[in-house]
Amino acid sequence: MKQLASVMALGVVLALGGCDRTVETPSKDAEAAVPVPSDPAPPVAPDAATAPAAEAASAGPARLDGYGPLALGSTLEQVRTAWKAPLQGEVPDDYCHALRPQGAQAEDVVFMIEGKRLVRYDVRNDRIVAPGGGKVGMSLGQLQTLYPDRGDVTPHKYDEKGHNLRVRAATDGGALINFEIGGDGNVTAWRVGQTPQVDYVEGCS
């Protein structure tokens, strides 16, 4: 009888203890099994910290202060060291001359060296985007939308129907952009450089 009473008492204790149990936190497996509501969740805004990184990843090599690993004002030795790959072009004393990446096409980037320093670079293809968004093939109207406050329209030296859009420097002493616009109204080339070299119409010649 004592053994039977002990068993009954134990059953009562367990029953009462079950009424006082705290709610358990669902496991990850249980949460995964819960059906997803049919209404889609609102889109999550991108993390503001990742936005600059995304912009940097999409940015091209052309900048107002240089191109790729090169900085305007760098010495000829610094240019050759930073570019790493071979650059073609004669270096006659301090005279102005052009350097072109080995194997580059004629319309690809060309670096202007004067006084043994990088003072300008020129582009003649639509694959490379200028600082601010301009590129070969755009119209004057498109450029003026991109550069609304700093663009001056000037005559083309050789094409009476053409123009130049000279984009003034954003800061004192900064580089300028000059877009050459053909008689059809579209950009044929552009260049970034310091003054006065950015205004050389025939390049070094």
Rank of each mutant, 00 (worst) to 15 (best):
P155D: 04
G115M: 02
K161G: 12
D126Q: 08
R80T: 11
E55M: 11
A82K: 10
V23Y: 11
E202N: 14
A59P: 02
D108L: 06
M112C: 02
G137C: 01
P155N: 01
P101Q: 08
R191N: 12
S205W: 09
P46H: 06
R150Y: 06
L14C: 14
D39Q: 14
R124A: 14
Q144S: 09
D47T: 06
D172M: 05
P196N: 04
K2V: 12
R150V: 03
L16Q: 14
D94Q: 14
A82I: 06
G17E: 09
D199K: 03
Q88S: 13
V13R: 08
S6P: 08
G103E: 06
R117P: 02
P52A: 04
K28N: 10
A53N: 04
A189M: 08
Y121T: 01
A54V: 10
V12K: 04
T22D: 12
P86F: 06
D108I: 07
D184Y: 00
I181P: 02
I181T: 01
Y147S: 00
G17H: 07
Y158H: 10
M112W: 11
I177K: 04
Y147A: 02
R166F: 01
Y158A: 10
E31K: 13
A32Y: 03
D149F: 04
A51K: 15
A49H: 11
A98L: 14
P35N: 02
E77F: 05
P61I: 03
Q197A: 07
G133S: 02
A41G: 10
N164W: 03
A57L: 10
M1C: 12
A169E: 09
T22R: 13
L64E: 02
V44N: 03
G141K: 11
H97R: 14
R191V: 02
T171W: 01
F111A: 00
G115H: 02
A15L: 15
D20W: 14
A49C: 06
Y200N: 13
A15D: 10
D159S: 07
A5K: 09
G11V: 13
G137F: 03
V79T: 06
L76P: 01
P131K: 01
Y147R: 04
E90W: 05
A62R: 08
K116A: 12
K157L: 10
Y95H: 11
D126M: 03
P101N: 04
A98I: 12
D184Q: 07
T188N: 06
R168L: 11
A9F: 12
L118F: 14
A82E: 11
D152P: 01
E114S: 12
L10Y: 07
A175S: 15
E160A: 13
I128E: 12
M1Q: 14
E31Y: 08
T188G: 15
K2F: 13
R168Q: 13
W190S: 04
V187E: 01
H156A: 09
K2L: 12
E202F: 10
A32Q: 10
S38T: 15
V153I: 15
G203W: 01
P46E: 07
V187Y: 00
Q144D: 08
V119R: 10
S58P: 00
G103C: 08
E24K: 13
K116Y: 05
D20T: 13
I128D: 08
V12Q: 09
D184M: 05
H156W: 07
L99Y: 02
D172L: 08
D65R: 10
L118E: 00
L16A: 15
L76N: 05
V34G: 04
